[in-house]
């Protein structure tokens, strides 16, 4: 079974982002970038399937300009077998919608024919939580979103999903699409020898414009602003004062 994992280059989760003064977006110059944390979980899950002999090959794909190869090399260093970069034109500056990303990924799915595609449930920059579901829709595959456990049993994929009230279990026909939630696994760190080895692993480039997909977004950003900052309040000396403030001043208890 071939597993395809989609990864996205995003701002590192520990970076405090700054909104550009001209309100056109978020300032990404000289900011540390990383694989989207949920996508790292997706890579890890694919590697575990391979290590338990349930997957034969792990292919990672990312959409972006040349610098997205850094994240693909990171995924290769974790243990993926090969990588595909869907290369955006160097002058492309609009943010792709999740639908466009799903269409570009579908082109890769059509070419690679993986039985399982694993993606992070959400990227921590645009916070959309859409791509996996859209990819499943346009490839007419079953979807196991927000997965906290997956098991393959006789051609059926059992997925435990994190839902609002608890957990849900579904059985999916293969081929299928899975999106990861936090508790699915804890991703490994790449070892130094594996980082060196990753430099020699195959990384193929597909030009996005060669796929005949319209890259222009149907959603445009009008403005990006910083939310109103919350002001720090006061330190109260004891519990009695706290209760007094909450009941008499705020009326919330």
């Amino acid at each position: 079974m071939k597993v395809l994992v989609a990864v996205k280059r995003v701002v590192d989760a520990n970076v405090k982002i700054r909104v550009k003064p001209d309100q056109t977006g978020v300032d990404l110059s000289n900011v540390k970038m990383a694989i989207n944390p949920f996508d790292e979980i997706a890579v890890e899950e694919a590697l575990r399937l391979k290590e338990s002999n349930q997957a034969s090959e792990v292919v990672v794909v990312s959409i972006g300009q040349a610098n997205t190869q850094e994240q693909l090399r990171s995924a290769l260093a974790m243990g993926a077998d090969r990588a595909i970069q869907v290369q955006l034109p160097a002058d492309h500056s609009d943010e792709l919608t999740s639908l466009t990303v799903a269409k570009l990924l579908k082109a890769v799915v059509d070419q690679e024919q993986p039985e399982l595609v694993i993606l992070g449930k959400q990227s921590i920059d645009s916070d959309n939580n859409q791509t996996g579901q859209m990819l499943a829709a346009i490839t007419n595959r079953a979807q196991g979103t927000f997965a906290s456990e997956i098991k393959i049993d006789q051609g059926v994929l059992n997925v435990t999903r994190e839902i609002d009230g608890g957990l849900q279990e579904v059985a999916l026909n293969l081929p299928a699409v899975v999106t990861t939630d936090l508790r699915l696994n804890e991703p490994r760190y790449a070892s130094l020898p594996n980082i060196m080895k990753a430099k020699r692993k195959p990384l193929d480039i597909i030009e996005a414009v060669s796929l005949g997909i319209n890259l222009a977004p149907s959603i445009t950003t009008v403005a990006v602003i910083e939310p109103a900052a919350r002001e720090a309040g006061i330190i109260v000396p004891d519990v009695a004062t706290l209760i007094e403030k909450l009941s008499a001043e705020q009326g919330v208890i």
């Binding site: 499943a136 979103t145 609002d164």
Partner: peptide, 23 residues
């Protein structure tokens, strides 16, 4: 934006060939 809608609406959007605006 419940987990149910997060699961279903992007699939609808994909089938309808439109983008989604989340949350």
């Amino acid at each position: 934006a419940t987990t149910q809608a997060k699961n279903v609406l992007p699939r609808v959007a994909g089938l309808m060939d439109v983008a989604q605006i989340s949350e």
